[in-house]
Amino acid sequence: MSLAFDALLCLLALLAALRAVAAGEGFSRVAAFMAYGLILGLVWVRLAAVDVALTEVAVGSGVTGLVLLRAVARDDAPAPLAAGLAYRLLAGVVALLVFAGLAAVVLLLPEPAPSLAPEVARHLPATDLGNPITAVLIVFRALDTLLETVVLLLALIGVWALSPDRTWAGRPAVLLPAPWSGALEFLARLVVPVGVLVGLYMFWAGADVPGGAFQGGAVLAAMALMAIAAGLLPRPVLARRRLRALLLAGPFGFLLVGVLGWVFADAFLAYPPGVEKAVIILVEAAITLSIAVTLALLVLGPPVAEETE
């Protein structure tokens, strides 16, 4: 019974993926892609990875979908001609080869599967955390997570750098045309406080149950975007020092804690014994904040000249 459900999920994911590739129009492709992300979210639950499911739905489908929708709306260039038949056949053959190779590897995977789960379980008590995934992200492999926050920041710099010189310090363009009715404002006034609470809870609970900085940050970013779209918050001025300080809080708070590891523990990114959990929560809070701001600004896009609206 549950295998049938899994098979149905797989089928849906494949159909959505095919539609995201084959649909003729940009908007339909993005819609199919967002559906694909939501289906993958269910797949992740079936794979016993609730943390990943939350991230997939919030970031992989939600925020990514928003960015793609924005690009589709603003990219009015006619689609280039379809590739020739011979080339498409070649691509089909390559795709089939990829499938065959990967399917063979999947069927031949070693038994029993090698796993680091016992290692994580052995060292989890030392971190004082209940959620093994948070422990991997913030303790065992902290360097990856630290650099990931830098990657996000760097993507934002790259996006900003695309603006013409005179608008570098301006505001991002309007995402939605102003609605006629007050429906959006009504919704935002009611949902944003609840959403902020949910986002904060996801960050806070992430130490022990599924959740964490990335999931919580994504929810907070969505709430900020909703408030901006509804006109409850002004579009941010990107040159503001305070805004930039928020962007930097996560990566540099993390770096600073890492350096202090040399002083109070015996290695870079080692947490001082006794207060690990407090320091970890502090780092997570800074990261959550920065991720929320960075994600929201990435969705808003590069600054534009004010007079173009």
Partner: peptide, 30 residues
């Protein structure tokens, strides 16, 4: 999932890495 064990529903290391990967992919898309 194949590496589930030690009381976890799945090997937490790859699961954590996927979270990082999703965020990186989003950055690329943006």
């Amino acid at each position: 999932r194949r590496g589930a064990g030690a009381g976890f529903g799945g090997d937490p290391v790859p699961q954590a890495l996927v979270i990082t990967g999703i965020v990186v992919a989003f950055s690329a898309t943006a």
